[in-house]
Amino acid sequence: MALQQIVEETVSGLGYDLVEIERSAGGLLRITIDLPWDPDASGERFVTVEDCEKVTRQLQFALEVDGADYRRLEVSSPGIDRPLRHEKDFERFVGSLVDITLKAPMGAAAAGQVSANRKKFRGTLERTPQADGAGWQIVWSDEPAVKPGQRVSKKKAPAPLQALGFTLDELREARLAPVVDFKGRRPKDAPPQA
């Protein structure tokens, strides 16, 4: 049986979602798991050390039975910069800050609003209704972030919001933007994070 299939069956059999399989030099096999997303569940649940330990034990057994070649096995959670690969990942993180990289630069489609060679964008992920189904867009402002303690003039006009529509086929990579929230460093108008 192929390594991908063994890992997928084992991880899903234990009730987790397989996010990524990565092989690296030195025989390291890195498996990233996540809890299945339930849109009706209240609050976000996270992968714990016990979850990783449970999957590691089962994978060690399954890989040994099939004679898979690896030296070290590492099972982890997706982390704060979780990759977004499937439609359900995008649905789950609508409204979140994401980093996307396009396969091809914007070219003339940007109408001079952004550099024609730009491929990378950071902004809020939104769903857009389209005739052939649902599309996606990222919304951002090129205004620099305000540093803690910095005064901002109330007369200063904010930079305009920009939006870029895209399909999943146009993406090279998409990830949650790693935003770390230190106590006391949150803007006063931001809602508290759990």
Rank of each mutant, 00 (worst) to 15 (best):
10 T>D: 01
112 G>T: 12
61 F>P: 00
26 G>F: 10
137 Q>P: 00
127 R>K: 15
166 F>Y: 08
178 P>G: 15
80 I>C: 08
109 A>W: 09
137 Q>V: 01
169 D>W: 06
119 K>S: 09
62 A>D: 15
75 V>D: 06
55 V>P: 04
67 G>Y: 10
56 T>I: 04
167 T>N: 03
156 K>L: 12
38 D>G: 08
183 K>T: 14
29 L>G: 05
23 R>T: 13
39 P>T: 14
41 A>V: 10
51 D>T: 03
15 G>S: 03
41 A>W: 01
61 F>R: 11
31 I>G: 04
35 L>D: 00
169 D>H: 03
134 A>C: 01
83 P>S: 14
122 R>H: 07
49 V>C: 05
103 K>Y: 00
161 L>R: 03
109 A>T: 11
42 S>N: 07
164 L>N: 05
106 M>A: 14
191 P>A: 14
180 V>S: 11
63 L>V: 05
191 P>Q: 15
149 G>N: 11
128 T>M: 01
100 I>T: 05
150 Q>E: 13
85 R>E: 09
76 S>T: 11
163 A>I: 00
25 A>W: 06
53 E>I: 06
31 I>V: 15
27 G>Y: 12
51 D>E: 02
164 L>A: 07
6 I>A: 10
57 R>Y: 05
167 T>D: 09
119 K>C: 12
157 A>W: 03
88 K>E: 14
129 P>M: 12
76 S>F: 04
61 F>H: 10
9 E>T: 07
